[in-house]
Design a protein around this nucleic acid. Structure first.
Lengths: 204, 204
DNA sequence: TAATATAGGAAACATTTGTTCTCTTTGCAA
DNA sequence: TTGCAAAGAGAACAAATGTTTCCTATATTA
């Protein structure tokens, strides 16, 4: 499903107009911008763009269309308790949306978890902090990861990750807590959700 | 030049609509959203909003207006070194804009400072953290404040604030550092910039 | 060659939409 | 009370705007 040169010109002009003016152009304004004289000529192209999915039109409304271009998300989903068997980012797991641009933390698809307890206090992470996580399946030794241990809880926890020859270890950053060590087939119970890439401490 | 409750409702709805739909609402769509039945009732408010500068209208065009000045800013200014004699938020002191909605921290006019050193490590604040500050002139004992000491530096620092009978004390949250104590007229050298209301730790 | 797809023009038409007018209601102050 | 201002309803009007129909021109393809 390609797009012809002319159609791309039209789409680009619509974006330019919207960025400059703050609202979408009318058909005749597009004509003027492209040097056309008849709105009738243009509407055929606009309909094609709609059919191909580049344009969302609202039938019956004037000067009302959405320009679809994957806009980067402007917020980070806050994940609460995790329903069994669902992917982490499933709608039912989302507790809130944090009005923070994830690019601030260098990731496009981050999510956040609320930290409970003081097991990471030596990493300057407090009870109540929001941990920003970039999703990934595996981790480097020594990095802080969000993990969930199968059958143990329904909430993710932060731990320092360490893989040894025959075991996987999850270490707290607080000498008052014991590390969790998984041997042999138990290692499969440790599910890495992602790597810690930032912290937000709101309403201190 | 205030803005009445009703006018704020209308402006908020216009923003909500634009964010949701991708294009501005028509007068009658605003009516439906607010429970009004007559566009004639609404246009008076819209004109007032235009006069007060909250709305840019394009005469003769349908469904075409710019929404100026979001009700609340969507970013927090990051303040770097402070030029002598300027207000903290002056343009020349701004180093960057953090794409974070300040309402996340419960304030509308927050700014941020980059933390240098580990003098607040016991408060779980690290070198490189961004401290979110709500501007205020005074502070309660025991709270963490951003202060600048006149004649000493051009950068604000975080300290735990304590006012005694005859002195003002600025305590680090790290036993390796000494508190700063100001007696008598020296107390005037301590300028409080604001109170710590949040922490952001980016790109960990 | 004829057929077809793409691109554009001009005019007429129907709906949306901003605008203007008059009227009513409510709350507040002189 | 009277007067005034803000808020809203309803109807009618004019301009903007999307839509349709019928036309021409050019390039490509069977």
């Amino acid at each position: 499903m390609g797009i012809t040169n002319r159609q791309k010109e039209i789409l680009d002009y619509m974006w330019t107009f919207q960025d400059r003016e703050g609202f979408p152009p009318s058909l005749r304004e597009i004509c003027k911008g492209l040097g056309l004289t008849s709105a009738g000529s243009l509407i055929k192209h606009v309909r094609t763009l709609e059919d191909k999915g580049f344009l969302g039109r609202m039938p019956g409304k004037k000067r009302a269309w959405r320009l679809r271009r994957r806009p980067a998300p402007l917020s980070i989903p806050l994940i609460g308790a995790i329903a069994a068997g669902t992917p982490i980012l499933a709608e039912e797991n989302r507790e809130d949306e944090l009005p923070v641009d994830p690019k601030l933390f260098g990731a496009a698809d981050a999510f956040a978890l609320r930290v409970k307890g003081d097991s990471m206090i030596d990493a300057q992470i407090r009870d109540g902090d929001l941990a920003v996580i970039r999703p990934q399946q595996d981790a480097e030794n020594g990095t802080v990861v969000a993990v969930i241990v199968e059958g143990l809880q329904h909430e993710a926890t932060l731990k320092i990750f360490r893989r040894r020859d025959e075991s996987v270890e999850l270490h707290p950053a607080n000498p008052a807590y014991e590390p969790l060590i998984f041997h042999q087939e138990d290692r499969a119970k440790v599910k890495i959700l992602g790597r810690l890439i930032g912290v937000i401490r709101p309403k201190l």
